[in-house]
Amino acid sequence: MRKRKSIVEFILFIILLTGAMFMMIPMVYLISYSLRPNSDIYQYPPTLFPGYYKLTFENYEYILSKSVNIFIYFKNSLIVGLVSMVLVALMSSALAFVLSRYKFKGKEIFFLIIIATMIIPGLELIIPQYQIAVRLKIINRLSGLIPVYAAWMLPFSTFMIRGFVDNIPREMDEAAYVDGASPLKVYFGIILPLMKPAIAAVSIFNFLTCWEEYGWAQTVISSEKLRTIPIYIAGFFGRNNFTQYGYVFAISFLSLVPIITIFITFQKYFITGLMTGSVKG
């Protein structure tokens, strides 16, 4: 019995490994091409791996040189991602707490509307959102990106965190009320600390969403200096129909490094975050 089990496991392992190889080929391709000279990139026949004598860091050298100033784009993306993430975390956790713990007229309808807006593809609302941004004079500014990103992420975050708060026993806060604590005290002193795993999980997703967002950023940002990484990378396209793929791949790989780091560090939250809230088996 045990022997049969280990054979089955071995077969599954091989299947999974083969699948994983297919999943990784494009990434291998990306890294491989980022390490070749640009002249190599249009050679025919193409090869998956570069000859070892051709390996070069010249793409990275160019990208990291002062003339490109890639750090500005990293900084822009980082600022926008962090501010949007924190803004959503603050608002959605407070909303989730109130929705979960207090009764008032129209509450369920309000929650239903929040959930319903999750259906709408984010970009569908950008015409009126663009007009609001014009009126607020935040076009072509980093602060023009943040409210719209936050608006996209707020419903789902509230929905997920509320599911989590609903599972926190009510006795916790009721005992505090009996002791004379105020709602603010209960929120900041008891519930918020307990919410941390849910907020963390949601926030990681939100940060990733901002980090990779393209459509809205492309619409709002026109100055070279205010570009985020996605629109900088996409900007390599279409110039004289000749894309310098070596550079593109090098930047792409560099922009993946922080994401990979975040992912591996918080790997646990990706699962626990999904387990809470909406997914209850």
């Binding site: 391709y29 990306l30 990779e212 996605p230 994401i259 992912f263």
Partner: peptide, 12 residues
């Protein structure tokens, strides 16, 4: 692939 951004995926 999930954490790789759509822009990079499209380029690639």
């Amino acid at each position: 692939p999930v954490i790789t951004s759509w822009v990079i995926v499209s380029v690639l």
